[in-house]
Design a binder for these strands. Structure first.
Lengths: 222, 222
DNA sequence: GTCTGTGAAGCTCTTCACAGCG
DNA sequence: CGCTGTGAAGAGCTTCACAGAC
């Protein structure tokens, strides 16, 4: 299927990657339940997309389907993990230990999916040195040192809006490449980095728009 | 540009709505700072899209720009609020008062954007009756009664995965149309409803993919 | 000159539909 | 048969580029 000659282009589209996460968690479940293989149509029904979409997504990094049996559940889950980069547990930093930050520290869901929040930071001197959900909270002044020492590449941002950009820039300088940003504030992305914003209020606004009284004529699963 | 003859189709695309949220929060800020009007290029720079995109988005619900002055900041913010449906404060229900739920209750950002978490529910009988961040927590058995009494149309889901679908179906039955779902579990959307999933681990997986070592040749702002 | 609103082009992602294989 | 992988068509969104207004 010839991507580009001898190039390093993986050419998996972002939309595809987002669905790969879905496929993987479903496949992981199926594997638990003892399923060996699955057809594109079945997987499609479980994640609510078309069978063609599933086939294309899975074919986008090579062909793994067997005509008779469909896709090997275990193998496909493993392959997706390798593509995403979660075949080994990754350490993640949490910056900002306020209400949301503490909730994230207590949240068990990350571990299941291959992420471990190993360090926490907060600008508040009263919080630095304390322990939250088993993790010691460092002061912001230790940001570079600790990030570098732990070789952290992904950080979750849950600070106040003030000074956010500076924290991003410093973390990027210390080797962090991906930021999951819960702070509703526009940011500038340092070169080579990626910021994934989660603006909860914006999602509510989207829902508000969708669920206004009128507005027949719209699909349910946007 | 003729949408459809005399129909009520607003035909604002979902992508556009998501950007409208952005525009609005920026416009609100600008208004605070005393700005009267703004050009598409300036707004575009602030939200990191092309000027053409801004013009098309804003033109998608009628023309409001003045050639000389650009767009009226105050008026545009108000118009967007009307489109989204946040021109009046909307009551929102929180279902599930665990770590994440409590963090959301303490989060002040909703009020600023026109949402008020007015009621909370939890399946745990120990939590029902207690008060969190000033809101009384109801038992799940009161779901229909309270939702109906408050005429709630949007709910935030932060429960355990078990029983999630039943809660969604019951809430939908009680008039809720939009769900902001933090629970990482596949759900079936009741007819006429909208579910906006926020899967934090999936976002981390996306970042993990993007920030793998290789992978030159990719834009920074996905 | 500057800036908006918008046809038309371009691009990306999705779906169709079928060859090929077991 | 039924299913995968995929060229080709389709749908949707973005950008270009320019007419018209000032």
């Amino acid at each position: 299927m010839t991507n580009q000659a001898g190039s390093k282009t993986p050419q998996v589209s972002l939309r595809t990657v987002e669905r790969l996460s879905l496929y993987r968690s479903i496949l992981e479940e199926l594997n638990q339940e003892g399923a060996q293989s699955i057809h594109s149509g079945q997987l499609a029904a479980l994640v609510d997309v078309t069978p063609a979409q599933v086939r294309r997504d899975l074919a986008s990094f090579g062909s793994f389907g067997n005509v008779a049996r469909g896709y090997d559940v275990r193998r496909m889950a493993r392959t997706i993990s390798e593509i995403i980069g979660t075949d080994q547990v990754q350490d993640v930093a949490l910056i900002g230990v306020g209400n949301l930050g503490r909730a994230l520290l207590s949240y068990g869901g990350f571990e299941e999916r291959g992420f471990h929040v190993s360090v926490a930071f907060d600008a508040d001197p009263n919080k630095a040195g304390r322990t939250y959900a088993g993790r010691r909270c460092h002061g912001i002044d230790e940001l570079e040192t600790v990030l570098r020492a732990s070789d952290i590449r992904i950080a979750v941002l849950a600070t106040r809006p003030e000074g956010l950009q500076e924290i991003i820039d410093r973390a990027a300088e210390a080797g962090v490449r991906g930021f999951l940003n819960f702070v509703p504030k526009m940011t500038t992305t340092p070169p080579g980095c990626f910021i994934e914003p989660i603006d909860i209020s914006a999602k509510l606004e989207k829902l508000s728009f969708l669920s206004r009284p009128h507005d027949e004529s719209r699909k349910e699963r946007p």
